[in-house]
Nucleic acid binder design. Structure first.
Lengths: 129, 129
DNA sequence: TAAAAACATTACGTTAACGTTATGTTTTGG
DNA sequence: CCAAAACATAACGTTAACGTAATGTTTTTA
């Protein structure tokens, strides 16, 4: 009933797979589950909370790298102000990148139309029979 | 002089690296250079022409897979009509995909702005000093 | 107490088109 | 003829976030 759980409960409650938990441990996104000697790992409610926060941030399309840069703030400063300020910076970057991508694709699109027209004209000229 | 050359001349004239030539050979984009017994490979003018045509198609942003589907036509049908017709189909697909990408990024962009606004308002409310 | 769950660990696979060592062989120029 | 180019081959690296075996151990349950 308390906050001590094995990976099965953790993953079920967090909505992730064991593979994901272990991967996050391996990259330092969440603390490694404690273990008694060898054998299985035990996790806490705080780790569960971390996983849920990570999932929220993933929905905002933050990468795991970006999440790692802000996740601790959520637990150091419970008000969430500092974390959200930092996330906001990232979101603005993403916005700029999205704008850039849109411009690139529009540019590519224009070139494509140009090529297509050229091809069509070339084929028209070749085929007047 | 004639059309018999080793990889050095081939790559220099085609504007690619030896690695690229060997990679293309390995995926069947160009015929393997002939060799006498063991040792070095010799290439022909036609292979050079193929490489140049491949480069042209790459400028149109065709993938190597897509190029493989059309490259032979350029040498089977010297008029180029069939090849260009096939390329045209690919270009139109790319156009559709570009449009799709643009829509996706615009959607993402809109969501981002939404999130950003939310964050800004949340931070405003928290900080009324 | 023995079989069934659950868990742990290792490692390959996923996309595209080569770049970059590392090492060994062949050809060429003086 | 020998050193310097040029060439050949094999194999790892590159991006992100895990999925998916394969195999072995621990915990739970009947």
């Amino acid at each position: 009933m308390n906050g001590r759980m094995r990976i099965g409960e953790l993953t079920e409650r967090a909505g992730v797979t064991p593979r994901t938990v272990r991967y996050y441990e391996s990259i330092g996104l969440i603390p490694p589950g404690e273990r008694e000697g060898q054998g299985q790992h035990y996790y806490t409610e705080e780790t569960l909370a971390r996983l849920r926060k990570i999932n929220q941030l993933k929905k905002l399309r933050l990468s795991l790298d970006e999440i790692r840069d802000v996740i601790d703030l959520y637990f150091i400063d419970p008000s969430g102000v500092q974390a959200k300020q930092k996330v906001l910076v990232v979101l603005r970057q993403h916005l700029a990148e999205a704008d850039q991508k849109i411009r690139e694709y529009q540019q590519f699109r224009a070139e494509l139309e140009d090529h297509i027209e050229r091809f069509e004209r070339w084929l028209e000229e070749k085929k007047p029979r």
